[in-house]
Design a protein around this nucleic acid. Structure first.
Lengths: 193, 193
DNA sequence: ATTTACCGTTAACATAGGTTAACAATTTTT
DNA sequence: AAAAATTGTTAACCTATGTTAACGGTAAAT
């Protein structure tokens, strides 16, 4: 249950057995079924979700009822509505499971206590946030400067595994286009080969 | 020179006078003129830049030579190419000054040492990165789900000060549209009043 | 003072992607 | 096993934004 989490943490910081044992006590395991919510829009996001197994999505719903995928998450990744989580304000987005999943939840107070109790964990999260930040800036850069076809190709290259596990319509949404447009792009790409 | 930095840090963590004095020694002051580079594409980003005074921009240049503004930065903000900074790889973007500016540069080795030397500084950066992350996710959400006109209105509301200090063409680029499109949007908005 | 560069707007035309609707295959539910 | 839902594709038509070019006002440089 903690194998993946332990691997991820030890990738970035060296913890003693005692620190690892202590860290694990801050997490709450949770299994969710496909389509089950972890967070619903309007609720306060109380936990960071670490994904031991499965696949989640973070999305918003616009005025017309359209869903817009902000992030996917697979094994080894963390997902939350960071704004709601850090400020305690109602969340503007939702999180649910694309597959049956096993999560380790870290509530805000536990998160803060864990970082205070083990400085290397604070370090781990700083490094993690730096990386998440880099990826976000790269995504923003792509969204403002490259056409949908190229964004799709970048997605295939960067996240081949997610491509296999997630419906095309969800990928289209993540890319900021409609499923029909993605279909059109895929057709054009296959004709170019 | 350190006033703004000190304010920003003390907003998030309580440091003793000794810790503050020590922290300051890690920074390198630098003045830059309008249009002067802080980082050029292809170089390794060696420092985080804290903006004491002035305005910077982080941008990429596409195959056609078009500039795409990824981020602006004004007083109290940090700017870098985070991917290059953390990995030591050549940067995919550039940073230069939109106005004459005064910066405090924190080199990677100093950054790591400072965080190690003063745990509250590591805490400060974790919190800062959480906030930067939230803003990035909000921006991504907007880019994939709302039309340019609404993105512009959100920009005006969120960054009124930047609006006053930066040319319309730069704002258009930040929004992922052309200057002509922004002009068209502005005209339509003024006709709606 | 004059010239050059920058900034912002505007219009005509083009295009990437959106919308709508229909269809077929596959998967899920009953 | 059958029905319902999901997934993905396709086509005709529409729209938000891109492209190109021109123009005028202001600021900066000479």
């Amino acid at each position: 249950m903690f194998t993946v989490l332990q691997e991820q943490i030890l990738k970035r910081v060296k913890l003693t057995k005692e620190e690892l044992a202590l860290a694990k006590t801050f997490f709450i395991p949770k299994k969710v079924r496909k389509r089950q919510f972890i967070l619903q829009e309007g609720e306060v996001c109380k936990s960071l979700a670490f994904i031991s197994e499965g696949c989640l999505r973070n999305y918003s719903v616009d005025d017309k009822g359209e869903e817009h995928i902000i992030r996917f998450g697979i094994e080894g990744w963390w997902l939350s509505d960071m704004h709601s989580f850090t400020t305690g304000s109602p969340s503007m987005s939702s999180i649910d499971a694309i597959e049956d999943s096993e999560l380790l939840l870290l509530e805000k107070s536990s998160y803060d206590k864990l970082c205070a109790a083990i400085p290397k964990i604070e370090h781990y999260f700083r490094i993690l946030l730096e990386n998440t930040n880099s990826a976000a800036m790269k995504r923003i850069s792509d969204l403002i400067s490259v056409p949908a076809e190229e964004r799709y190709l970048n997605f295939l290259k960067t996240y081949p595994e997610i491509t296999q596990r997630v419906p095309q319509s969800q990928i289209a949404s993540f890319l900021g286009i409609t499923p029909q447009s993605l279909s059109r792009i895929r057709k054009e790409l296959s004709e170019k080969k």
